[in-house]
Amino acid sequence: MKPSRFPLVVTWAVLIFFYLPIVVLVVQSFNSARFGGGWESTSLKWYRQLLKEPSIWDALMNTLIIATTATAASMVLGTSAAFALHRYGKSLLQRLHFSLIYTPLVLPEILMGLSMLLFFVAINVELGLGTIFVAHVTFCLSYVAMTVLARLQDFDFSVIEAAQDLGAGWWTTLWKVLVPILAPGILAGGLLAFTLSIDDFVISFFVAGPGSTTLPIKIYSMIKYGSPPLINALSTLLLLVTFASVAASQHLARKGEPRRDPSRARITMAQP
């Protein structure tokens, strides 16, 4: 029985489709020509110029501050939410709770961005890093909760009873039993939250104020008004960081237990 070659062809086409733009972008970042038409000469000139742009580094700093704090907060809120959903199941309160966690995942980002902007305007809060933080926690919370919830599906609750049977108080049970068992799920959720927070443009753009430019907002304004080769160089650096961290996490995952990909968590939760 000879399998059809069609799926293989499509797979290769898709891979080329995925990576061609990225490769071209990286190559162009070493082209000294201002408008990527012809190849002038190989140079690092755009990288040098990038270093001289302090606003980029300020934006990066803002992004990292928000991503770290928003991830930490959403990990606590999301884990507790997932635990509540799993443990107390189908009560009316939990059904409401679940829809509140689930709906932000399916709504387009722009709706969330605008609604939060309206909210902050209505209650007269000054826009800035604080509002971005709040907005990020709001959408990251849902992702963490769903990732942890997926892990909890194969969690055996009798270990809690076993711990208590062995004399552990609830605080000991929480820290010595629950958290270690759920750690991979919480970390996966946190990693997902961190990535989404770093990458988020639309929501941040709506709730950002003067002086609270994040890296994606900075990149957006460079795309709209700045010089293309500079973005090429910046993008290449970002891709490098991404690929390096993915490679590192793959390496760690190979050492440790099989890790479930955070992106698969999104699949689980996207099933209504």
């Binding site: 509540a84 509140l100 909210f119 709040v134 709001t138």
Partner: peptide, 16 residues
Amino acid sequence: VTLPSLVWLGLLFLVP
């Protein structure tokens, strides 16, 4: 375990 996320989302997602 329910209230923190419930209140947060109620205030910052449902109300907006």
